[in-house]
């Protein structure tokens, strides 16, 4: 474990807690894409298949349970909670996220470190996570208004993977033979997808004005 990875995990944890807190306290999911949340639930479900078979550390297992629990409860809130579901804007959240799942699965069948069930799904979860934010960014551009909590959620979600990139650089130089091109490239692409959001988020913060993405 290194400081970059720990910072990344804490930032990731903060992002899901911000979203869960927003939905739980104000009982609203306005501006939040259910598609992105469903994709994240799939990402964690396919990435943590080893949760019961490989024990890495208490921290690792605990965090896996937190990410699984939070992502599925956010999906439950947005789909089934009688009050929260009313604020879900399904007419605007129309990104066909199944068009992301199939290509990621096919790609994972071709590009992986080992052609086994778990490894292919683990690779699939990396590719899917790289594009999972797209429905949320599309919804943002459609609705144009973005409340602070949703903005913070997306910012933290993008920042966590940026911290992971520093973690990979650190591990590359400190651990011999530590080379994992697949998460590195998927993680880099994922962070780049947040590029324009970061740009507008930073400017709205600097000029202290409401965050608006260009149409």
């Amino acid at each position: 474990m290194n400081i970059f990875r720990f910072a990344g995990d804490m930032t990731h944890l903060a992002s899901v807690l911000v979203l869960l807190l927003k939905i739980h306290t104000i009982k609203s999911c306005a501006g939040v894409s259910l598609k992105t949340q469903e994709l994240y639930a799939i990402v964690f479900a396919t990435r943590y298949l080893d949760i019961f078979t490989d024990f890495i550390s208490l921290y690792n297992t605990f965090m896996k349970l937190v990410f699984l629990g939070s992502s599925f409860s956010i999906v439950w809130y947005m789909r089934s909670h009688k009050i929260v579901r009313r604020s879900y804007d399904k007419d605007q959240d129309t990104f066909r996220h199944y068009f992301l799942i199939v290509p990621c699965l096919l790609l994972a069948m071709i590009i992986n470190e080992k052609f086994t069930f778990r490894e292919v799904l683990w690779t699939f979860s990396l590719f899917l996570e790289a594009v999972a934010i797209l429905p949320q960014l599309v919804l943002l551009q459609r609705t144009r208004n973005i409340d602070n909590l949703t903005g913070q959620y997306i910012f933290l979600l993008g920042a966590y993977r940026a911290f992971y990139i520093f973690n990979w650089i650190y591990r590359y130089f400190t651990e011999p033979h530590y080379v994992h091109w697949i998460p590195w490239i998927a993680g880099l692409l994922q962070t780049l997808l947040y590029g324009d959001f970061f740009y507008y988020y930073f400017h709205s913060w600097k000029n202290n004005k409401k965050l608006q993405l260009p149409a």
Binding site: H12, D50, D54, E113, K114, P183
Partner: peptide
């Protein structure tokens, strides 16, 4: 290679 690749990152 190893039988099962252990991923220690989240």
């Amino acid at each position: 290679g190893q039988a099962v690749i252990q991923h220690d990152e989240l």
